[in-house]
Design a protein around this nucleic acid. Structure first.
Lengths: 327, 327
DNA sequence: ACTTGCTGTTGCCGTTTCGGCAGCATAGTG
DNA sequence: CACTATGCTGCCGAAACGGCAACAGCAAGT
């Protein structure tokens, strides 16, 4: 009797071959049709399939009857695909991939098959979302290795182009041609501060108001800085003392200290925002763009199985996430 | 007995439904698995499938045995998909499309189904390649209507963006974001002239040499003109008398006249080149780009069936074509 | 012209698979 | 407690599959 415990499987003595998968999923008439289409001979197809030629003849005829379509032209001793047969043959080639992909993914799931996903992420995403995402994923796919690098946005792009990572997480608004933002969420830029900050109750907060106070911002090598740079100005007035740091985590800590107001997205501070220790107020400066969070892959080339599964997993994860500050 | 004449079909009294196609192509175990995955109940799946629940139970169990995988978790009276079952279920959704597409295309082929392809093309391609291409296509798909417009390259792009045509043929090197060059061939730009022209025996012909003679070129609204414009210069010397026309056909006629040398690609003159009345000599000016011939579609949105089939047909046609002047 | 070897198809039959019916054990609901 | 629902199993008849033998017709070799 079958074992009913979760994820218990029914061990097979042999791996699942493409031929066996075909027999499991598809009708013999389709299999025999494909074999005849390949060999253009009933007898040769029968030999390859290890069945009698009469079985092949009957199955093909039954398929033609069922569809009401002539699939082969019988020309003396030769079989030729009819135009309709060519069409069916061409489309039926697309049936193998889903089933083989399903089985491969199931084997990954069961730990029968191993794999590696190489990830590059900016710190704010890496420290906030990926731990949970990767933990969920690792439990589900125990034989998968995850190779994670916390790097800058520009280095995410660089490593993707150089094929040193498979998937990138970062804030990039204009990637190079070789990179595709396969998933994107736009997030407001704003001020993160303690609830007791003087600006905590301000309506329609602007950068100019922020600059009346001590401000912490990211250094130029962090991509958000490029976005807010044009707004770090106040004509005719001196800028306040600012702290420039190269860590979003440090911006959060500075805001927690109470003295500084940190200019950032809420990503990286969502825990503190959720439990009330910090608040996030979007900036309303005209022309201030949102920050574009994205999951990045290389353009064109299909992901290998493990990174593809991880990508789907990450996409579903973020789809179901109430991203703070999201539009 | 079946009619063996070419393209004779076996008429059916009813159209082919998705359900019937599923039964024709796929094993009942997969069909019943999918039904249970949808309804999470053996009895409900059985009702929808119009079979006994025992049949469903057995087919699902046989699939699990065949694959060596547990697909459902039986929780008292409830069925839940196992992780492996979720994977198979997700991938099996991709099986319907190829078979339904095959049947739809076959119905187009048989004239059971009608369709329209709206095409926009530049004159040079429209008059030279498309007549044969469309003739072949029309014979194969008798119920398809082809709506052809001969327009400028820029208008090809414009009409694609406005969804007034489905497929465009033209020379565009930098399409807007909404347009994809789904197929491209690069073609040399050069001089078309009669064999008796003084430059007919020139080696490594340049624009400067051409400008020693009477030259015919395209007007600015034809895209090739933009490409060659920077080369229509000779510092310190006067330009020769030039004819500017808005018809590639006219360029060919002018070249045939013997007096003019026409600056163009060989597309539009390939018949005259093939039979020796004209010759084509590529220009060797440093920095002169090739001209990019392309089949254009709208980015992202999938083509409807008829345009998709026409696109495949056109692609195969050009793949098998010895395009004169091609790189 | 004859012979041999190949093709696809058809008749017949045994085996395998499918699915219905009846009944079982168990869980949920009134 | 009674009733209704679930998934599963034993048994059996029907349907489908495929093998064997033979056929008709075509191609190639002698």
């Amino acid at each position: 009797m079958t074992d009913k415990s979760p994820t218990a499987d029914r061990p097979r003595e042999h791996a699942l071959s493409a031929g066996l998968l075909a027999r499991v999923f598809h009708q013999p008439s389709l299999l025999y049709f494909n074999a005849v289409a390949i060999h253009l001979s009933i007898r040769e197809a029968a030999r390859r399939l290890n069945v009698a030629s009469s079985a092949v003849t009957r199955q093909v005829a039954q398929l033609e009857d069922a569809l009401g379509i002539t699939l082969f032209l019988r020309d003396k001793r030769r079989m030729r695909l009819s135009p309709a047969g060519e069409i069916l043959f061409r489309h039926s080639r697309r049936l193998a991939a889903p089933m083989e992909a399903a089985v491969s993914e199931i084997e990954l799931l069961r730990g029968v098959r191993a794999g590696v996903v190489r990830i590059g992420t900016v710190e704010s995403v890496g420290l906030s979302f990926l731990p949970r995402l990767i933990s969920d994923f690792g439990q589900r796919y125990p034989r998968l290795t995850i190779d994670l690098s916390i790097i800058s946005s520009s280095e995410v792009v660089e490593r993707l182009v150089e094929e040193r990572i498979d998937i990138g997480f970062g804030f990039i608004s204009k990637p190079p041609r070789q990179i595709d933002i396969a998933y994107r969420r736009d997030v407001h830029i704003g001020a993160v501060m303690v609830p007791s900050h003087p600006l905590a109750s301000a309506k329609n907060l602007t950068m100019d108001q922020c600059l009346d106070h001590a401000v912490a911002v990211a250094r130029p090598e962090i991509s958000i800085r490029e976005v807010i740079e044009p707004f770090l100005r106040r004509p005719g007035l001196a800028l306040p003392p600012m702290v420039e740091v190269n860590s979003i985590r440090m911006l959060v800590e500075l805001a927690l200290g109470g003295h500084y107001l940190s200019v950032m997205t809420p990503i990286g501070a969502q825990n503190e925002i959720a439990d009330g220790r910090l608040i996030f107020k979007p900036l309303h400066d005209p022309g201030l763009p949102t920050n574009r969070f994205g999951i990045l892959v290389r353009t064109g080339s299909a992901l290998h199985l493990a990174p593809a599964i991880f990508f789907d997993h990450a996409k579903s994860y973020f789809d179901g996430l109430q991203l703070p500050g999201a539009i």
